[in-house]
Amino acid sequence: MYADNFKLDDYCHRIRFSGELKPDFATVKALMQQHLRTIPFENLNVLAGKAISLKPEDIVDKLIHQRRGGYCYEMNGLFALALTALGLEYQWVAARPLFYPVRRPRTHAALIVELEGVEWLLDLGFGSYGIREPMRLDLLNQPVKQGYDQFILSQEADGDLAVQALVDGVWIKQYGFNRNPVEWVDFAPANWMNSTHPEAIFTQKNVIVLFTATGRKLLFGQLFKEYKAGQVSQITVQAEQIGPVLEQEFNLIKPMHV
């Protein structure tokens, strides 16, 4: 994946990363963590009725130059550009969300990259219970602690690998994926569905997430939650308070008509 307007220095400035840049695990992990803590997962353009572009240059302009966030295609798309700039190859995977009561199509985009002889799952765009750092693909059924969160990778009956998160003491399946080849263009139908279908969660309410060093902040509809060191607090945000909350907690400016 390539964009004419992507510069690694601009990306590092956007995510406030000042470390050494190498095509290794330590760099990729650090970039992923900084990205999650500075660029929010958000669906404000969807709620405003604006098309979500998958053109790489548009993603760069929105997330870096406009200092906005995005959802999975935009968040992982931008990270894919950073991987390319580092000289790293990656594979796209199309994942099926598993927490819905009915079977859903493979609408989620994530990445796999090989670093120092090990394959890792990279995902910066799943929202509240998304992984916080690269996750090994060769460790099945072994809980992995990432900060104050825990995840596990399991094998499904259909052959997929499933990412599970420990939520309130219960393992909840988040999504499943396989190694079937996927190209960037293959996400166009899923992007259209997620941004226009009336039953898609992103067309119904705010879904804003920003990771922190000890947890994450989440605005879901009018419910604001903050997870901090394993503890959670929540408040209901009135409609007139949405704008200030977006700006103060997520460093976002609310678009018109949202």
Rank of each mutant, 00 (worst) to 15 (best):
L54F: 06
Q248H: 12
A239G: 08
Q234N: 05
K217C: 12
L88C: 14
P101K: 00
F177H: 08
Q174H: 05
D138C: 06
F126Y: 12
T27P: 03
L63A: 05
W120S: 01
A80W: 13
C12W: 02
P198Y: 00
E249Y: 09
A85T: 06
Q241N: 09
A157E: 09
F177I: 13
L252I: 15
R67S: 12
V207N: 08
E42L: 10
R104N: 01
M256F: 11
A82H: 11
Q33Y: 07
V245M: 03
K55H: 14
L21C: 04
D138S: 10
G70V: 10
I235H: 02
L83N: 14
P244T: 00
A82S: 14
L210F: 05
Q34L: 01
K55V: 13
E249C: 05
L81Q: 09
Q146C: 09
V102M: 10
L21F: 12
E20A: 13
G70F: 13
K7V: 07
I131A: 06
G125I: 09
V144C: 04
R68P: 09
V170G: 00
L44A: 07
E119S: 08
E74H: 08
N43H: 08
K22E: 06
L124Y: 07
A48M: 04
E74L: 13
L88Q: 11
K55R: 10
V60E: 07
R136E: 11
L111A: 07
L83T: 12
A94H: 04
G69A: 03
M193F: 15
L54C: 08
D123C: 08
A110E: 04
C12M: 02
A95W: 05
I253P: 02
H13P: 02
F126C: 07
Q204I: 08
G147I: 15
L210Y: 05
A94P: 01
Q155Y: 00
T203N: 06
E226N: 07
T236F: 03
P56F: 00
K228I: 10
A239T: 14
I59D: 01
L124W: 08
G243Q: 15
A85D: 13
D24Q: 01
G243E: 15
L218F: 13
N45D: 15
R179V: 05
V102C: 01
I201R: 02
I131K: 04
A48E: 00
Y90C: 11
N5Y: 02
V185P: 03
A95N: 10
Q222S: 10
H197R: 00
D123I: 11
K7C: 08
Y11C: 12
I253S: 08
K145G: 01
R104M: 11
R104G: 01
G87A: 07
R68H: 09
Q33R: 12
T84I: 09
L139K: 11
C12P: 12
N76Y: 14
Q234W: 03
E226Y: 10
Y11W: 12
R136N: 04
V237N: 01
Q241R: 06
D123N: 13
